[in-house]
Design a protein around this nucleic acid. Sequence first.
DNA 1: AAGCGGGGTTCCCTTACGGAACCTCGGGTG
DNA 2: CACCCGAGGTTCCGTAAGGGAACCCCGCTT
Lengths: 141, 141
Amino acid sequence: MACSIARTLDVIGEPWSPLILRDVWAGVRRFDHIQADLGISRKVLTERLNHLVEQGVLERLPYDARPRYEYHLTAKGTELVEMLMVMARWGDRWLAGEAGPPILYRHHACGQIGHVDPRCSHCGEPMHAGDVDLLPGPGSG
Amino acid sequence: MACSIARTLDVIGEPWSPLILRDVWAGVRRFDHIQADLGISRKVLTERLNHLVEQGVLERLPYDARPRYEYHLTAKGTELVEMLMVMARWGDRWLAGEAGPPILYRHHACGQIGHVDPRCSHCGEPMHAGDVDLLPGPGSG
DNA sequence: AAGCGGGGTTCCCTTACGGAACCTCGGGTG
DNA sequence: CACCCGAGGTTCCGTAAGGGAACCCCGCTT
């Protein structure tokens, strides 16, 4: 399908994949740790990790002389985390309830608690759903 | 799970749901049109639409004296589109290949083609995966 | 009265998931 | 040397979710 959203979903749209990325981002990088943290079945975790490695989102790195491995974000995977931050922001706003957000994000540049705010790469003004027109691009073929 | 990403996935994490939202955002709002556009089974489309309406992401509005309905984004759903734009941006960068992006986004405020650029709500500087520390928040349970 | 078209339901079949057990490969321990 | 351990999977089976096609309902239109 000539749609970048659909293509992105082919990479990380399967059940559990975003949560696996979140774990790796948060420092939970080993098979058993991810499995215990998420409560996912080992079979599905194997499938998801293999797929994410094949897609170049994660890389599998040994951390011991024995055959022991950790999963790390590649550059491609690191950019996916922006999507996770937007998801987290939406969940904080609409689903967190009285308790407030479970995680806070402290921005290195300013040292303050903030959240992601989508802006136009061209002019820097806010870029929300109603702020754009969709036009066919070169790959619309 | 005390995780806003997981909570968000409970709302739009099922297969097809993001693509349904994309269709509605792009103006494909009716059952048969969405079904034809995505090639999804009617049964699953019914389930997904009902779930999205229950979650307050879509609303079901009559458009005729006969029992005919359109699905529209609520405010809650409209904010989810920011996530879709980030997904599209990632797909454009990493998966579009030679052909280039299938869709271009023209920003109303500046009239130019742009893409979403996540910035810190506090200081306005870029806010990417490596630019934040994660801290437990009030809802960390 | 017959037909149509939107918006679903129902049925059946196949695929995917969860759970638990099993396997493997190095490295310690007695 | 024999044994056990623990990380990282793989295999097997039963249940749950998805796809396809057919069917249904209801309010027009002719």
